[in-house]
Computed example of a mutant assay.
Amino acid sequence: MPLVSGIEVVNECVSRGLVAGAFNTTNIETTMGIVDAIEKVGVPTFIQVAPTNVALSGYEYIYDMVARRLATTKVPVALHLDHGKSLDAVEKALAADFTSIMIDDSEASFADNVATSTKAREMCGPDIALEAELGSIGGKEDDVAPERASMTDPNEAKAFVDAVRNDILAVSVGNVHGYAPNAHIDFDLLDEVRHASPVPLCIHGGSGLPAEEFGRLHEFGVVKVNIASDLRNAMIRSFGEAYNANNNENSLIRVSKGAVVAISEVVERRIRQFNPSVA
């Protein structure tokens, strides 16, 4: 199936009561592992990449790699720009035919965040999904951390979405990027934001959250959960274990295939945790 708009992924998940995983890729092994798991489970999904992770490939190579692998897949998948910190990143991802975009100006003032996010909305047009962030999520994403983290204010949610017309609202409700041993969702705050927001919500920093919290998220208007660190750790660990087992190992393809399996197992487990009703 060709890549679909993130709008289609969101709409199908909402209609079926599902939560889409949003899994970050960087290379062919990660992409193969993600799609292998998607095919097993059958839940609509986002595959995404952040600007910090296109340093080697550029956006076009990511698009080609993902689109080729999905050509024979029947599950709806969107290719998403994760944490586009500038309109330049948005422009480059759109030029490479990404089908879903995140603009993240969450560290700016409310007015500036609205202004930047509204420009991104205009760039995306009506057919490309737009995610915007309200409240600044803490922790590190590829060693990049916000100067300040702040929780999402439920009183600002409706005004923000009404002004920007984004399709997904990324929120800061106790979630933290990367591995954060003390991270927990504040479900009372999430419930307030859910009732205030006209659009479904996204939780970033899924890798560091307790697994038992995932199964509740669909009850609180969450339609997308981001997972990045888990996949990177699975690949690095798989290569490290292969080297430790045989420090003269020289079959890169054998080790790469092992990494694909490790990544696929993580993705499948997370999708099922997000969606306890999926057999």
Rank of each mutant, 00 (worst) to 15 (best):
M1T: 13
G6A: 06
N11M: 09
V14P: 08
V14K: 10
L18T: 03
L18I: 04
I28V: 11
M32Q: 14
I38N: 07
G42S: 01
P44L: 09
T45S: 10
I47H: 03
L56P: 09
I62D: 12
D64T: 15
D64S: 15
A67N: 15
R68D: 15
L70M: 14
A71C: 09
K74D: 13
P76S: 08
A78T: 07
L87M: 00
T99C: 08
T99V: 02
E107S: 14
V114P: 11
A115K: 13
T116I: 15
E122L: 07
A132Y: 05
E133I: 08
L134R: 03
G139A: 01
V144Q: 14
V144C: 09
A145R: 11
S150F: 09
T152M: 00
T152H: 01
K158F: 12
V161T: 10
A170Q: 10
N175P: 06
V176F: 05
Y179S: 09
Y179P: 01
I185R: 09
D186W: 07
F187W: 08
F187A: 12
V193K: 10
V199T: 05
L201C: 03
C202F: 01
G206K: 10
S207G: 04
L209S: 02
E213N: 06
L217Y: 03
L217I: 02
H218R: 15
F220M: 05
F220R: 05
V223T: 12
S238T: 01
N247M: 05
N248P: 05
G258N: 13
V260S: 08
V261P: 00
V266S: 04
I271E: 03
I271R: 01
R272T: 06
Q273I: 02
A279D: 14
